[in-house]
């Protein structure tokens, strides 16, 4: 019984199976890793095994064979899906702030840190507080 099911599961759809997928060079995966798989919940086109991701890898491979550059390939997908498809947010427009914000945050933290390495006076209110507490019974 199981084997019948098994056959039904894999060998009947073979009618619809096309030829084998194309060979993919490391370059294809390098580019696909920076592109988002549209149907997935947060996987890149290199990782996902969904149909769209497989097709995206194939498109990348074909475009590389046509001599297209990485920039042109990414532009091809941005043209269709918008900048959402780029995992590396471009350093312009609304995503520029993705790069600026962490830098600003780190600088602010560093400034706070710098204060520790400078000799400083004890704040006046603390001294007053200490005196007040000394006087308490």
């Amino acid at each position: 019984m199981r084997w019948v099911l098994f056959l039904a599961l894999f060998f009947l759809p073979a009618l619809g199976q096309e030829g084998p997928p194309p060979d993919l060079s490391p370059e294809v995966f390098r580019i696909a890793r920076e592109l988002r798989c549209p149907v997935c919940q947060g996987e890149s086109a290199a990782e996902s095994n969904s149909g769209v991701a497989v097709e995206m890898r194939r498109i990348i491979a074909e475009m590389l064979q046509e001599g297209k550059t990485e920039e042109e390939i990414k532009a091809f997908f941005v043209d269709r899906y918008g900048e959402w498809i780029l995992y590396n947010p471009p350093r312009r427009g609304v995503t520029l702030w993705a790069w600026v914000l962490p830098a600003v945050a780190l600088i602010l933290l560093a400034l706070g840190l710098f204060a520790y390495f400078r000799p400083k006076k004890v704040p006046k209110e603390l001294l007053e507080e200490a005196e007040r507490r000394l006087k308490e019974p």
Partner: peptide
């Protein structure tokens, strides 16, 4: 369209 190439051209998500 077994491979879904047209879907990519239309920016289809799923």
């Amino acid at each position: 369209d077994p491979r879904g190439r047209v879907g990519v051209d239309y920016g289809m998500y799923g």
